[in-house]
Nucleic acid binder design. Structure first.
Lengths: 212, 212
DNA sequence: CGATGTGAATAATTTCACAGCG
DNA sequence: CGCTGTGAAATTATTCACATCG
């Protein structure tokens, strides 16, 4: 791999580019198909300069007057984003959000497969969601270790998040996507990404009150 | 209001601070209760310098040797973030994600109330979720206008997102939280926030492949 | 003192602008 | 030509460091 260091802001946009390029691939099965930084920018609502600067980090091999070979660019982005592999994922928390995530089609298409779901509520244990049985949390370390699973999605309440994150890292998890409304900490070497749905709404209301 | 211009990165963190302060408020009902930038920083996994710089934008009125009056700080943040008001929200898309969002407790607590849910699937129209009947999409403009609703949450598939966003802005929506895996555009004066669950996972896999 | 508030320094990100290639 | 690739400039964000206040 060894890709130098790509800024986080760029990584985030690379995933957008990849998704929009997918449409291109689907539309024309024909051989050579090129896209310019300007076109990709207008599709993603970003400037051509931003697109070129971002792609610069991954050595996209664009051609003057033509742009980027879409198929080749996708392969390059997949390698950078780790989408050329399949990833087993455990989901912790079988509430409404956990359920939505377990049924979310987008994950599997990108190579992320939820292989186990855990909760501490005996009421929920044993239910079958999208082909996966909800398992009791006490079994999680065993499943992670025997399956050599490195990615976890956390969809548990505020108070339970940090404790679960600790349990996950102890069991060998290396990357956590946390949906609890509290940012969780992890030892270095473990990557945590916090997504807070309420925060996102608050951004909107701040915009509305700062207008006028 | 008129708060000067607060950087987007700071706004995002202000919402975190607010959430963590909530715990403080709940724990001690006693009168004066102060928190320092250092304490707040260690709770949120940020540096004291970042906390002070962020709060600087909202004139928090901290006291040397003591820190910030928690109750007063909450009120200040609420005003900046628009949490001292109640916001009516429409939800578009009654799939699994839409369902999780409609049952999500966090929104209502912050003053965001989902008052209507829309879908174009006749199969789903009429169902009752958390006290709200799923309505047909054809009625959305009327509901938005008569309710003077300004915030919408979009949880529809890729292909439907931009069209729906256009319909929403035409009906008077001023802020959109978009969960579709495509960023949508809107005229200036309308604020769009894109949240892509797949993107978040891709950040994790990039981290895992860039290690080693 | 030990905390805030805040200029100033540093770092990161975005944007510009243009040489050079096919 | 019209595009990429890429230094350099501009902007934005973070961190430092310290005067100041209760």
């Amino acid at each position: 791999m060894m890709k130098g260091n790509i800024p986080p802001a760029t990584i985030e946009r690379l995933t957008y580019y990849r998704r929009h390029l997918e449409r291109y691939l689907n539309r024309s099965a024909s051989g050579a198909n090129f896209i310019s930084s300007g076109e990709l920018g207008s599709q993603t609502h970003l400037s051509a300069a931003t697109v070129r600067r971002d792609l610069f980090y991954v050595k996209p091999g664009g051609k003057p007057r033509l742009g980027y070979d879409v198929k080749k660019l996708c392969l390059t982005l997949d390698a950078v984003l780790g989408l050329d592999k399949r990833w087993k994922v455990v989901l912790v928390g079988a509430g409404n959000l956990g359920k939505a995530l377990s049924f979310y089609q987008g994950f599997r298409k990108l190579g992320f497969e939820i292989v186990a779901i855990f909760d501490n509520d005996r009421e929920k244990v044993g239910r079958n969601w999208n082909g996966i049985k909800v398992n009791h949390i006490k079994n999680i370390a065993g499943v992670i270790k025997s399956g050599k699973i490195r990615i976890a999605v956390l969809a548990v309440p505020f108070g339970a998040a940090q404790g679960m994150a600790d349990m996950l890292t102890k069991a060998g998890i290396k990357a956590i996507l946390n949906f609890a409304p509290v940012s969780v900490a992890a030892p270095s070497g473990v990557f945590v990404r916090n997504v807070d749905l309420s925060t996102e709404l608050e951004n909107l209301s701040h915009f509305l009150v700062s207008e006028a």
